[in-house]
Amino acid sequence: MRSTPRVAVVTGGSRGIGRAVTRRLTAAGFDVAIIYNADQDEAAATVREVEVAGRTGLALRADIADAPAVRRAFEAVKDRFDGVDVVINSAGIMPLAPIATLDLDDLDRVLRTNVRGAFVVARQAAHSVRDGGAVVLFSTTVTRTHLPNYGAYAATKAAVEGLVPILAKELAGRDITVNAVAPGPTATDLFFEGKPQEAVDRIAGANPMGRLGTPEDIAAVVATITGPARWINGQTIFANGGLA
């Protein structure tokens, strides 16, 4: 066992589920580097939270689909912390429209971020994560519930689910776990955007637990599979309160 803290990289770590994951890993004793793409102020605020909690934080700006930018970000993490133990790819986008009318430019955009971006981060993680570490990608429960208007988003996340067990096998012999977490409807800005209250209430009521998930619910699952649950590997874990 090392005397130094474990180090996590969280993409999309400045907002929503990614920020909750950052907080949870910080509480577990990790130093955390977040990779963000747009909101520098939120990224800086998240780093302050890490540091107030007594750990070391780092914010790095990069488009996750830009392989050279992601490589540079990971190199900066290695320079600062001397290595990486856990990689969480929570960054993603979710344009909604029926398949028949979806703008193909939006399709290209979501494929670039959610598929190419996940692949770029996973590939970099394969080179960077120390033996005994963990990689977590994000899917969605919509790959099971098949809701209208989510065709492009669900297709990209199905691709992520296909990637996970293959990478787990390719990293055999290094004691690195690779899993996906597939949240159900979760109370984030991304979820609430464009939805009237009636729709929010209806979606929450469809869950056997009678509520939306919280970012902290999802962060708890991530903390488990990056910590004590070493025998879970190559899986997609549906964290949705029993929705599907």
Rank of each mutant, 00 (worst) to 15 (best):
G12V: 12
K157G: 09
D105V: 06
K157W: 08
K169F: 11
V86G: 14
I35S: 10
A69W: 00
A159K: 00
A199Q: 15
A154R: 13
A73D: 00
F138P: 00
L171T: 00
I99H: 15
T214A: 03
M94V: 13
R72K: 10
A100I: 13
E198Y: 07
A219K: 01
R116M: 09
A73W: 02
P215F: 00
A180L: 11
V120T: 05
V47Q: 01
I203S: 05
V115Y: 05
T140P: 08
I88R: 00
A44I: 07
T46E: 14
R112I: 04
D201F: 05
A126Y: 04
A97L: 12
A91I: 08
F119I: 02
D105F: 07
I35Q: 01
D63Y: 00
A43F: 05
I35K: 02
D105C: 08
A134W: 02
V135T: 02
P228D: 08
V21A: 06
L25W: 08
A62K: 00
A45G: 03
D82H: 10
Q124I: 15
T214K: 07
V32F: 05
A168E: 07
A244V: 06
A152L: 11
D175G: 14
D82W: 10
F81G: 11
D103T: 04
S139N: 03
F238Q: 11
A244L: 07
A172N: 04
E170N: 09
H146A: 14
D103Q: 13
S139Y: 08
A168V: 00
T156W: 06
V87L: 01
L58E: 14
V10S: 06
D175M: 15
V9H: 10
F138R: 05
G83W: 07
A118Y: 04
E51F: 06
S3R: 15
D175I: 02
E161H: 02
V121A: 00
A152W: 01
V178C: 08
G133E: 09
A65H: 02
V178Y: 02
E49S: 14
E170Q: 12
G184T: 01
L111C: 10
G18V: 03
E216S: 05
G227W: 03
M1N: 12
A44Y: 03
R123E: 10
V9Q: 04
G173M: 03
I99G: 14
D189I: 11
V84W: 09
V200D: 15
P5G: 03
I232T: 14
S139I: 05
S14V: 06
N240G: 11
N89Y: 03
P208S: 02
G173H: 07
V160S: 02
N207K: 03
K195W: 08
S90H: 05
N149C: 12
